[in-house]
Computed example of a mutant assay.
Amino acid sequence: MNTLASSSFAPRAGETRRGVGELLREWRLRRRMSQLLLATEAEISTRHLSFVESGRALPSREMVMHLAERLDVPLRERNALLLAAGYAPLYRERTLDDPQLAAAREAVELVLRGHEPYPALAVDRHWNIVATNRALAQLIGDASPALLQAPINALRLSLHPAGIAPRIVNWHAWRAHLLARLQRQIDASADTALVTLHDELAAYPAPPDAAPADLEPIHNLIAVPLRVRTALGELAFYSTTTIFGTPVDITLAELAIEAFFPADLHSASLLRAHASPAP
Rank of each mutant, 00 (worst) to 15 (best):
P99D: 07
L101S: 11
L101E: 12
A102E: 01
A103T: 14
A103N: 14
A104I: 06
A104T: 04
A104N: 08
R105C: 00
E106M: 13
E106N: 10
A107W: 14
A107K: 10
A107R: 14
V108D: 12
V108N: 03
E109G: 07
E109N: 11
L110K: 02
L110I: 05
L110C: 04
V111A: 15
L112A: 07
L112K: 02
L112G: 00
L112C: 06
L112D: 00
L112W: 01
R113D: 06
G114R: 04
H115P: 02
H115E: 01
H115D: 01
H115R: 10
E116A: 02
E116V: 07
E116T: 09
E116N: 12
E116C: 06
P117R: 11
P117T: 03
P117Y: 02
Y118M: 08
Y118C: 02
Y118P: 01
Y118E: 06
P119T: 01
P119G: 08
P119K: 06
P119A: 06
A120W: 05
A120Q: 12
A120E: 10
L121G: 00
L121W: 00
L121D: 00
L121A: 07
A122R: 02
A122G: 06
D124Y: 08
R125D: 09
W127E: 12
W127N: 14
N128F: 01
I129H: 00
I129W: 05
I129L: 05
I129E: 11
I129A: 01
V130G: 01
V130M: 08
V130N: 01
T132I: 15
T132Y: 06
T132V: 15
T132D: 13
N133M: 05
R134A: 12
R134L: 07
A135L: 02
A135E: 10
L136C: 13
L136S: 14
A137V: 03
A137G: 10
A137Q: 11
Q138K: 13
L139K: 13
L139E: 04
I140L: 04
I140S: 12
I140W: 03
G141M: 12
D142R: 13
D142A: 15
A143T: 07
A143P: 08
A143E: 11
S144N: 13
P145A: 04
P145G: 06
P145F: 05
P145W: 09
P145N: 03
P145Y: 05
A146V: 14
A146F: 07
L147Y: 11
L148H: 09
L148G: 10
L148V: 09
Q149D: 01
Q149R: 14
Q149M: 11
A150G: 09
P151D: 07
P151N: 03
I152Y: 03
I152T: 12
N153A: 09
N153C: 08
N153H: 07
A154N: 15
A154L: 13
A154F: 12
L155A: 11
L155S: 12
L155E: 08
L155Y: 03
